[in-house]
């Protein structure tokens, strides 16, 4: 399935393209309904998926009771995340993901290597306007 990048404000009054898709998450332990659709950034440099703690609370996670994992971004400043197993709903499939949760995320979610890029083949295409990407679910043997 093909997706156009989405436009976001840039700091100079213009716009920038982000590779973002609408996803939902659910708490398999609580058999909760999934969240509403929210925008999450494709981030192949992220080790795993990370979601905002506000989403975790909404699906019944006591997010700070999760396994602690320290992550480091490009600034080098460590951030504590709390790991929980959630269901990630993406067009084309539902995958179980061990994801980090933090209230220090400036956006709703990051889709990283573990859980997302290991389950979906992503082909970026900058030749169109807007640029876009194609997403294909991988079914491993």
């Amino acid at each position: 399935m093909k997706y156009p990048y989405k436009s976001y404000p840039d700091p100079k009054g213009g716009y920038d393209w982000w590779a973002v898709i609408n996803v939902q998450i659910a708490n398999p332990a609580k058999h909760s309904p999934p969240t509403k659709r929210f925008e999450a950034l494709l981030d192949s440099g992220a080790s795993r998926c990370v979601f905002h703690a506000s989403l975790g609370s909404a699906i019944g996670l006591d997010f700070q009771r999760g396994e602690v994992e320290e992550t480091v971004g490009v600034s080098g400043t460590p951030t504590i995340t709390y790991l929980h197993s959630v269901l990630l709903y993406v067009d084309g499939g539902i995958v179980k993901v061990r994801a980090g949760f933090t209230d220090r995320l400036p956006l709703g979610g990051l889709l990283g290597r573990k859980g997302f890029f290991e389950n979906f083949k992503v082909t970026f295409d900058p030749s169109s306007e807007p640029p876009g990407f194609e997403l294909e679910r991988i079914h491993k043997a």
Binding site: K36, L41, D43, L105, L107
Partner: peptide, 17 residues
């Protein structure tokens, strides 16, 4: 009932995450 939810940052800036 079926919105698209976006978390806005403190400031809109380029991302290097």
């Amino acid at each position: 009932t079926d919105p698209i939810i976006v978390k806005t940052p403190v400031v809109w800036s380029s991302f290097s995450v």
